[in-house]
Amino acid sequence: MWLYLRYVFGRFAIFIITIFIAITIVFIVPRFVPGDPLFAVTSKLAEMGGSRGSPELVEEYRKLFGLDQPVLTQYLYYLKELSKGNLGYSIANFPATVTELLMRSLPWTIGLLSVATVISWLIGTFIGAISGWGGKESKISKVLVPLALGLYTIPYYILAIILIFLFVYVWGIFPISGGYTPGFPIKFSLPFVLDVIKHSILPALSIILISLGWWFLSMRSMIVLLQGEDYILLAQAKGLSDRRILWRYAFRNALLPQVSGLAISLAHIVGGAIILEKIFAYPGVGWLLYNSITELDFPTIQGGVLVVIIALTAANFILDLIYPLIDPRIKYKRG
């Protein structure tokens, strides 16, 4: 127990340090970008037909955003505001703060991606284990391996377009885009939840189907590999039933790289979801980031990136806490 606490403490320290470094990088990078943020904003206003504003006004805004202060002071101010959850104002949607925008879109992304990823991981992992255990000759392997290989090589946005074509244009079962039917009252009620689920099925399906192939293949190869292990052989010599050997001996050990894979894939999926949410006009963080990049809305980009980084680090931290429960060796090795 003490060892576990020490391990958790070590992991937590790494978690905090990672986040701190990420926050600092997010602060520094935009300041290396050539140009003046206020000039960019005023130019945009001028383009839209407004006035560029007098130099005094620009100076006033510079003070308001704290840009006249030395960089270190700005950094400390930024940390102070961040600790209060203040990410600043969005330029593109001015009166709205970045925090508001993120809070509005985060539940969509987290809901869609976590559910899709977990479903795909669970199905792929279990079917992969069963197929791997049966060996090359088993019937399910003969069907599923080529299928998984095929799915795994399709880019998910292509699959998304195919799904839209089939389910929206040909069969008309699901809505084409969005997170919910426009005009629907956003509140926690059964019809609204059903509407949301209906809208999320196609984007979720494109993620599930593609990553399923990968989970299936990696679990399968892991199980096949483990069949040559001495402890599997001994388990067979012990006269244990095939089922018990598969789930208690092979599966438990094959699960370790699979869980690491889940952590890594979370990173990939969050990054890739920008394209997915764009295709489906899904009101999540990816969609928000896509729009703010096209509109050069720096505070929102910063805020969005920060949230993604924190979410990923937190996911990794949580997985680190789970590892020792499935692999007792870890708390000693990495503690």
Partner: peptide, 21 residues
């Protein structure tokens, strides 16, 4: 029959025990 009548002590005890049990 395995184990109840004929049991086995493996060559590499190092790797013959399930590491996660």
């Amino acid at each position: 029959i395995r184990w109840s009548q004929i049991s086995f002590i493996p060559q590499g005890a190092m790797n013959s025990l399930n590491p996660v049990m």
